[in-house]
Design a protein around this nucleic acid. Structure first.
Lengths: 334, 334
DNA sequence: ATGAAAGCGCTAACAG
DNA sequence: CTGTTAGCGCTTTCAT
């Protein structure tokens, strides 16, 4: 069943069918009705491949993430999909699973399907992979790490804003010994969080000297708390974590070590993944809105894809972070 | 840049380029090398839309889920994507978000992109939506609820197996008052879990009379435990939940009510979502392997899509459930 | 083994 | 306002 079949049955040309289906205003309402009647009767759906072939636009946006199972991403994917539906796009979702081969295949798949734009929301992308995409002038959007170039948008995250709130919140609860459990040192966003912490502490005259190394995993959080507890130094009364998984590890380890949260130890996370609401106690954390991030990314892509004359420079979007209070923090004990 | 460009530069016909790229054995190695050289030099990637148009196969599988943010799904999506990459397919992911309009648009999008098969992994699908898909003879795979018809595969889940293990595990820990928090009554899979519980209890001579209504949400679990606690009846020492989110709600409410888990109350979940490992204490639960489910679904689709002569009946796949022990269960107190 | 050419389903330029 | 037709990039007969 194709457009010709419809044309035959509606006794019009294929051009008219095409126009009617695309709701071009220049078609006689009479004919249009005839076309739509046949379309509905036959249950006809236009073939997007054929459309894409002739129009040169696939109406597909690529979305590259690290791993779908990383709790940071489902919300992003969902929001992205919602927007795609609203705007009549499809989304081609690929994950790199931290594997260079998979990154390469992601890019290849994007190009083969002729996507109209790609949002790269992985943590740390190999520059080299962008070559093909940039060469083909595919609109791109990055978080934090993109180059400043035409057709490349960047979402800049204000880590400082939320982290300052977190530190000041803890200070207001009379905490003075506040530890920070950092993320992987090769991760730009983790480094940014770390220095935001240092600055926020310094601002209020607290020494930012209690910094533990973590790796953004549950296990890393558990290890870091264990170290903190076993250290000869005086134990901190509060700990700020570079991401929520780390904080969840801290909570888990605290439970095992009979440290009560928040009475014995206040814990603050970062990201505000869905899971943060489900811990016991629910986690106070710095929110970096995943849905807002997805919205910005989508908007960047659609702006770029649907404008006729591409801008000469890339555009910038900003995302602020904010503390959300739950129940893992309390007045410093003692 | 297209196949003609390659042909011109390699001084062969487009037919030869096509054959070389598709690695047909009938092409002279000499020419093939020439073609590939040009392909690599230019960074050429075949246009999948054009391929799909002529071949009639899109190499896209649809995957319909309820909500991507439901913790049950990310693992499924990830596994599905891994398999897609391995087999050179793309996945068209849509979610119904429990909205009839979105279900409809999911189906429309699948058909417009001419997917080669669809896995319907939602909880409860409107029969009516299948019409279009079945009419177009698209291979389909369901969980539990699919009709027995050609090109339609079904994955049957053995709820009984894991639930019996859970009940017997609790009984072995000397629990005799075991409650069950059920799921929504309109959900076939929830009903199956409930009756599996009843049967497993009856088998060992325990009365399956402590059944609370839940709704598969955290809040539902919290409410159910509150009721259980406030009831005049003797409190159960163990509770089996229809899904993990419910169990997590129970854990949360127990924490708020100063009931220690597992010492005062043993809790068992169902599904084994990733999150179950991250609760405090980690949740003992009946595993219904999401990755295995995804694997079965993908295999069903690819079998159906790549066989020349469609079988006359739908095929059936089985998935068993199994208890996984963590730390939310213990000997009955008292 | 290779090439010429038809055609997949659609849109858009052009003519009327 | 409507129809005719070329052509999007590729695969696949059918000749050679």
């Amino acid at each position: 069943m194709d457009i010709r079949e419809i044309a035959r049955r509606a006794k019009v040309s294929t051009a008219t069918v095409s126009r009617a289906i695309n709701r071009l205003p220049t078609v006689d309402p009479q004919l249009s009705r005839r076309v739509w009647k046949v379309v509905d009767e036959l249950g006809y759906f236009p073939n997007t491949q054929a459309r894409a072939l002739v129009s040169g636009r696939s109406r597909i946006f690529g979305l590259i993430v690290s791993e779908i199972t990383n709790p940071f991403f489902p919300e992003i994917v969902q929001t992205f999909e919602n927007l795609a539906v609203e705007n009549n796009y499809e989304i081609l979702l690929t994950s790199t699973v931290h594997d260079p081969k998979r990154m390469e295949s992601s890019v290849r798949r994007m190009i083969e399907r002729r996507v109209d734009g790609v949002a790269i929301l992985t943590f740390g992308m190999e520059e080299s992979l962008l070559e093909h995409l940039r060469f083909r002038k595919v609109p791109l959007v990055f978080v934090d790490v993109g180059p400043d170039a035409p057709r490349i948008a960047n979402i800049r995250i204000d880590y400082q804003h939320g982290i300052r709130q977190a530190v000041q919140h803890l200070a207001a609860l009379r905490h003075t010994r506040i530890a920070f459990i950092a993320g992987p040192a090769n991760l730009k966003s983790a480094l940014a969080r770390r220095s935001a912490f240092q600055q926020a502490m310094t601002e209020i005259g607290l020494p930012p000297d209690l910094i533990m190394e973590g790796d953004h995993t549950l296990e890393g959080g558990m290890r870091a708390l264990t170290e903190l507890v076993n250290s000869r130094r005086k134990r901190p009364t509060a700990v700020l974590c570079s991401n929520d998984m780390t904080a969840i590890g801290v909570i888990r380890q605290a439970y095992d070590s009979d440290i009560k949260i928040p009475t014995d130890l206040s814990v603050v996370g970062f990201d505000d993944i869905r899971l943060a609401q489900f811990t016991t106690p629910p986690l106070t954390t710095v929110q970096m809105s995943q849905s807002e991030l997805a919205r910005l990314a989508f908007r960047a892509l659609i702006n770029e894809a649907e404008q006729v004359a591409p801008a000469h420079r890339g555009s910038e979007y900003a995302l602020v972070t904010n503390l959300v209070l739950r129940r893992s923090t309390a007045l410093a004990s003692g």
